[in-house]
Design a protein around this nucleic acid. Sequence first.
DNA 1: TTAATTTTGATCAAAAATAATCAATACTGA
DNA 2: TCAGTATTGATTATTTTTGATCAAAATTAA
Lengths: 250, 250
Amino acid sequence: MNFQERKKKILAALDQAESLSVFELAEILVASPATIRRDLGDIAEEGLLLRTHGGAMKMENQVLTGFQEKSGVNNSTKERIAENAASCVQDGDIIFLDCGSTVFQMCRFLKKKSIRVITNSLPILAELIDVPSIQINLIGGELNKARKAIHGEKAVQHINGYHAHKAFIGVDGLSAENGLTAHSEHESTITTAFIRNAGQVMLLCDASKIGKDSYVKFAELSAIHTLITDSDSEKVDALRQQGVNVEVAE
Amino acid sequence: MNFQERKKKILAALDQAESLSVFELAEILVASPATIRRDLGDIAEEGLLLRTHGGAMKMENQVLTGFQEKSGVNNSTKERIAENAASCVQDGDIIFLDCGSTVFQMCRFLKKKSIRVITNSLPILAELIDVPSIQINLIGGELNKARKAIHGEKAVQHINGYHAHKAFIGVDGLSAENGLTAHSEHESTITTAFIRNAGQVMLLCDASKIGKDSYVKFAELSAIHTLITDSDSEKVDALRQQGVNVEVAE
DNA sequence: TTAATTTTGATCAAAAATAATCAATACTGA
DNA sequence: TCAGTATTGATTATTTTTGATCAAAATTAA
């Protein structure tokens, strides 16, 4: 087996295993540790993996992602919500994925599905680009570097050109009184466009945002088909009484 | 059997087998290893397969390599062309950047400029995302994972919504007889859209592609305002006589 | 901290693959 | 037809790759 073939296999193995030792790789590739070390050195130099003492780690596509770990607050909560949301997705679905850390977490659980994803989020793009069963449609428009997402009028037009079975969105605030609210105008216009063009709208929202309101009020509660959240409370109940279908993860 | 026939069979075999050794190919094509090596060398130079020690691999593994270092052909040549091209860009310009390795090299030389970039190339996006003085407009549409670029009808529509001062494009072939040619239909429609919507069209093209023709003929020589290349030759002269403004880098 | 263990990088020889050279053959165009 | 060119396969010298060995460096345990 030659270097290119090994390189391909090493990267594929790392993509699954997150991190592997030199010896594990040597066994997988049927090559000597010396060869694996040379390979890892070369591949690391290209910046495609992270060399560690004794092995290698998967290199997150740092340029485009960069945001997923910083949101590490209550990550396991977000993960549970995301997993629950992903379970609503079936093979053949066309889905909108909003930018936002909770929606991003869905990627992990979507990788085995055969779907089409329409998104304005670069981290989602980076995460799903190597999944053969997922076709990606990237929303075009102005790049918001801070949020690593596409925004603007052109992006809204782009979304209006499509209809998806389901939209998975996030918000900054959600309450029975004010419906869905966001920090920024830009993001809210995108989310509004998703809502308008999707058959079902799933709102991913951890408990900390429920009952709170943010700056821009952009959609009524009735726009949501299902709220996916992590814990029940009287605030959640207030939403239920307004006719929101609530799914509590775990 | 002649070279063209073998080339076709080699690519077909590789498409199925992912990777093959020189000896396997020699057996399939009933030719000597020496001939196969010569063939593989030529085909690899065209960028249609990846030469490995002992054989060749299907090109798609570029997906993993990130494409910019490619088969490292004449990288310094590309750099010189790119630097020359970048020197045509002024602060305040709005420019289209095509996907393709030579155009990609321009990024290095653009980082100090205050410009707006409209592109369908993800490597360019990744390279420029952290440059504060550059605003990026990403073209939306279907993601071509292999080329790490956006293609399709939606992308063309997106481009049609803008006008840029300059477009920097690449081709797979360029000749006085057949004008601009490309390997794939998808890419050529995007490039055509860039040409249509730009004030000036700069074609970045190293000498190896001049005088050669590829599969899809998509634009006349007259579409180009300036050809930026690395060395002069009688083939370049033939283009000059057709009225192409030629800039030779270095 | 020091001692024990692991990992690494360098070096080297064997094996494999390649590029270069050359003669034989096939093709080309006058 | 025939000279000139291009292509092919064989041979050989060179280069690349590989696995093994071992001292140095890094990590872990005490």
